[in-house]
Design a protein around this nucleic acid. Sequence first.
DNA 1: GCAAATTAATGATTTATTCAAG
DNA 2: CTTGAATAAATCATTAATTTGC
Lengths: 132, 132
Amino acid sequence: MSPAASSRWCPTPEQLMILEEMYRGGVRTPNASQIQQITAHLSFYGKIEGKNVFYWFQNHKARDRQKLRRKLSKQLQQQQQFHQHHHQPLQQQNQRNQPLLHYLDPPVYSAFHQLFNYNTSPFLPQVILILI
Amino acid sequence: MSPAASSRWCPTPEQLMILEEMYRGGVRTPNASQIQQITAHLSFYGKIEGKNVFYWFQNHKARDRQKLRRKLSKQLQQQQQFHQHHHQPLQQQNQRNQPLLHYLDPPVYSAFHQLFNYNTSPFLPQVILILI
DNA sequence: GCAAATTAATGATTTATTCAAG
DNA sequence: CTTGAATAAATCATTAATTTGC
């Protein structure tokens, strides 16, 4: 049985934790010397090269964006389906223009809650009138 | 005996079972309409509101992550202790002592990459000649 | 056995981050 | 650079488990 170095880097849990922590801490596209340092630090916990670090940040950033986009386009589809029962099919509607009811429907969560800084019964109001 | 509405929701065993099953099945952050459905289903087994379902998934997910993190950082500590017997702690490496090759060495990272707007094989160049 | 006291779980709230659009 | 929307993380608060002394 040869050691047969696996063809690609596999982060140890520790390395992953540190990378994720850095990511949360704001690191997105470290420059060459930052990568050098990070690599040095992480090699403490296992075999790793600079390019692994470089690629990790590239991928992590990209997949974050991707995740969000999938989420948004899923919502968009649902919304379109909803509207197709009531209206003409919508063309390329902007995400932000979701029907008011979607936000004010019975469970009205944190965003709204915080907005009005309710301390009790944050979910009671189902309709809000804004008089101008 | 007054009903003395308890100040917070307490899931019945059936409700809890269903919630946990959904979680195991992959449900993590249900949207408003999913929450409505779940709530409707669970209200069969006892009093429950949408916000309870919402909070339940928030908390369950968060505490799962928490559990995992505690486990990882425990491993991390053990490994650090292990390594401290074999290596010196890393210290702020002096930049001036790094030979130029350290910067141009095989993986030449994002800073350089971006600077020259490479689209492929960003790591090929190992030496750059600047002729004046 | 049984409550009072203490600790562990977990429901509910608040605060901080995130991405991307404007 | 700022902001809206969403959600993750941190925190507060109450209920359930449990320990303890009698």
